[in-house]
Computed example of a mutant assay.
Amino acid sequence: MSILQFPRSRELTLRIDRIACEGHGACAELLPELLTLDEWGYPVVHSATVPADLTAHARRAVAACPVLALRLDPGSR
């Protein structure tokens, strides 16, 4: 008996918890390709899907968030 394995999507989605976010701006400094800051200093996601070549930068931005408001979720299949 064998188990069928389906390839998992390696695509990641960038998410911001807008309630937890305090507008420190570290995420936009570390990931300017996907994030900018609005006029109040809060991040704006320009593309929620993280390209493979930016995955390491996105992980650093998530780790640098002092209030854990930024996260990476697995993309949908």
Rank of each mutant, 00 (worst) to 15 (best):
H24Y: 08
P32W: 05
G75K: 07
W40R: 14
S2P: 10
E39N: 12
A64V: 07
R77Q: 09
R15I: 12
L54V: 02
I19Y: 12
C27L: 00
V45R: 09
L72I: 04
S9A: 11
E29K: 06
I16D: 02
S9L: 11
V45S: 08
A61H: 01
A28R: 01
G25K: 08
A63N: 13
V67I: 06
H57D: 12
S9C: 05
P66T: 06
V45L: 13
C65P: 09
I16G: 01
H46F: 10
A63L: 11
C21L: 02
I16P: 02
E39L: 13
C65L: 05
L68S: 14
V67N: 09
H46D: 09
R60C: 08
P7D: 12
R59T: 05
G41A: 05
R8N: 09
R59A: 10
G41I: 03
I3P: 04
H24P: 03
R18H: 15
A61Y: 00
A52H: 10
L14Y: 08
C65R: 03
R15Y: 10
T49S: 12
A26H: 11
G75M: 06
P43A: 02
I19F: 11
L14R: 05
T36A: 14
W40P: 00
G25C: 10
A20N: 09
C27S: 01
L14M: 07
F6S: 08
R10I: 07
